[in-house]
Design a protein around this nucleic acid. Structure first.
Length: 110
DNA sequence: CTAATGACGACAC
DNA sequence: CGTGTCGCCATTA
């Protein structure tokens, strides 16, 4: 599997996250067969920002394994948190979602 | 080519 | 149970 394939698959998975659900970087990485690629998933999403068509991917639904919105700084203002709240995602902390309640496992979708 | 970095995660203390 | 370390690997300096 090439680097480009990995990136594309990450985007595919992200695009399929249901509204009101969230998943983690590590879960996506494992789902793609690269258990140690959690950081790469984050990097792939980071590149979406540069990418023009990046806006059409719900990258705000991807949080770390604890449900923390570690990527909020890459979104304008509090748009990441606002969008999640708007989708009905429950927060345990101001920047932490209830991931156990809203977790979406990419593996189940394959 | 080497070194530092990061939207992570597992494990040791 | 919070904090520190280390492994991870593409990307950038």
């Amino acid at each position: 599997m090439s680097r480009a394939d990995f990136y594309r698959k990450v985007y595919d998975v992200v695009a399929e996250i249901p509204t009101g659900k969230v998943t983690s970087y590590g879960a996506i990485a494992r789902c793609l067969g690269v258990a140690s690629g959690a950081r790469m998933v984050g990097y792939a999403l980071n590149s979406l920002i540069r990418d023009e068509q990046g806006g059409r991917y719900p990258a705000h639904r991807v949080v770390n394994r604890l449900g923390q919105l570690t990527g909020r700084a890459h979104f304008p203002g509090d748009s990441m948190r606002e969008r999640l709240e708007q989708e009905g995602v429950e927060f345990s902390e101001e920047y932490t979602v209830n991931i156990e309640k809203h977790f979406w496992d990419p593996a189940e979708h394959l």
